[in-house]
Design a protein around this nucleic acid. Structure first.
Lengths: 163, 163
DNA sequence: CCCTGAGTTGAGAATGATTATTATTTACTT
DNA sequence: AAGTAAATAATAATCATTCTCAACTCAGGG
């Protein structure tokens, strides 16, 4: 288990996370930023920190609001810019749904698909091997070699159904 | 081949389309609008006409520009409004890709997904009932009611594999 | 440790797609 | 034909995101 993996293993819930000083330490975050050929700044460290420790699938605004609490002088453009960089370099993945604001997650090591609530935007992740096998089958049927797919399910979540 | 099906059978290429006076006649378009519980107006007829005759997957702007040539007084809000109505009533389907403007197509009678060649862009449409059943299963598992999904497979087509 | 220049930042303006507002016009009902 | 509810054009508003740019800061060499 290598140390550097932590940044790519986002947690499911806030409560799951206990940050010991040596797990999200500055050096590791700095190395991560350098790997993207970017300069290390306090702002970027803060943003990364918030991303690692927070809930998955945040919008840029949510992330900005979180980060502003730690450093009230930070600008939202900085958050957008950094998210864009990280997305380009595949360190985060952008998820878009309808016309709603984009949501970001640290790119997971293992693939998963999304089930999104059309009403509140909540995203549930899932993995289904059977579906994946069938996809391979379809591709083969047309002589394609498959290398990537997007599966997004849209519906209404239990909470929104009540309303 | 029933007459009323034409509106739901978008064409692959512009060249495929020959509009004889009796195929997209006003009465049929009017009936279509009334089926949505909307009033028949010259603007809506024009928009519908442009949608039926044009290429698939147009943006609201493209459609507006097309329609404005026939009636220069038409407003773009009218196009957006009507597209929204038709989308709500499932007469057109909205497709969003990245942060790009939404694209619309007349809702095809039979649902299909896409298998796209990452190399040449060729698109193969397919349908797989088994996958759809599994999707319903996943949604139910999380308490969601499913109403729509996007499944896009990306790979290399047989022709491009040879190269 | 300081200099330098290239990269980064914050603030706010700009953009682009889409939606809301409103006064006016139009379609359908009686 | 007259009344009324809906639709329209024009334009303002909104919302997420990107751009601009002057001021600031990091990294690397002397």
């Amino acid at each position: 288990m290598e140390k550097t993996e932590f940044t790519f293993l986002p947690r499911q819930k806030d409560e799951d996370i206990v940050i010991h000083d040596d797990s999200f330490n500055e050096d590791e975050l700095k190395a991560l930023i350098r790997r993207m050929n970017l300069k290390v700044t306090s702002q970027r460290l803060l943003i990364l920190y918030a991303l690692c420790e927070g809930r998955r699938h945040v919008t840029a605004q949510e992330l900005y609001e979180k980060v502003v609490k730690k450093d009230s002088s930070i600008g939202f453009a900085t958050v957008y810019r950094f998210l864009r960089h990280m997305n380009e370099q595949k360190f985060v993945t952008e998820v878009r749904m309808g016309g709603l604001p984009a949501r970001y997650e640290l790119t997971p090591k293992s693939h998963h698909d999304h089930l999104t609530c059309s009403d509140c935007g909540q995203i549930v992740e899932f993995e289904n091997k059977q579906i994946e096998v069938l996809q391979e089958k379809v591709a083969k049927q047309f002589g394609f070699t498959l290398n990537h797919h997007v599966l997004e399910l849209y519906g209404i979540c239990p909470q929104c159904q009540v309303k």
